[in-house]
């Protein structure tokens, strides 16, 4: 059969028929959706470990768990090349301004994963009168996905990354943009 393009300016009815005919072959989506699909499948995390959880983050990238299967293994040493910050470890009060600076240095669009109890709420180090840590990463920046555990297993981190990928594909941005 094939699609016949009428000469001259098409009427609305003709356009509708055209779209119907092309539907099996052409996907009409917003460019942003396509971009999000690309972004979700090639996350570049920043090489950045704070404490114990960082070891599990490294384990996730290594031989057995192989984060490369999900397209998120290109750990970048520079924040300017990264679009994902995996907050792995305890954020101390001395470190908090540094984390904030790193986050600000990352270009938009960017996402973050709070890995482990420490970055969710202060975790094991939170108690009345505690003086040394920031009680959760959300005190200083936006967090997209929380992965609980102390430390979370590599499978948990992978699940967190997959959740984030879903979220990116749907084009959703939550919370503050800071």
């Amino acid at each position: 059969m094939g699609v016949v393009v009428p000469a001259g300016r098409p009427t609305d009815a003709e356009l509708a028929r055209l779209a119907e005919d092309a539907a099996p072959f052409v996907r009409l989506a917003m460019v942003e959706d396509v971009l999000n699909l690309c972004r979700a499948n090639s996350l570049w995390p920043i090489t950045f470990g704070l404490a114990c959880c960082a070891i599990e983050m490294m384990a996730t990238g290594m031989a057995k768990y192989d984060l490369a299967r999900f397209g998120a293994e290109v750990f970048r040493p520079s924040p300017r090349q990264a679009d994902l910050m995996i907050l792995a470890g305890t954020i101390s009060r001395k470190m908090a301004p540094v984390v904030q600076t790193l986050w600000d240095q990352m270009p938009e669009p960017k996402w973050s994963i709070a890995m482990g109890g420490c970055t969710i709420s202060g975790g094991p180090f939170k108690y009345p009168g505690e003086y040394a840590i920031a009680e959760g990463a959300e005190k200083i920046m936006r967090v997209d996905v929380h992965v609980p555990g102390c430390p979370p297993r590599p499978e948990a981190l992978i699940a967190g990354i997959l959740t984030l990928e879903e979220k990116i594909k749907q084009g959703r941005r939550f919370g503050r943009t800071r």
Binding site: R93, G122, P128, G129, E130, Y131, A134, E135, K139, I140
Partner: peptide, 12 residues
């Protein structure tokens, strides 16, 4: 004698 640090944006 130390009980708690001064309130800051980093704690609850």
């Amino acid at each position: 004698s130390f009980t708690a640090p001064p309130p800051s944006i980093y704690d609850d």
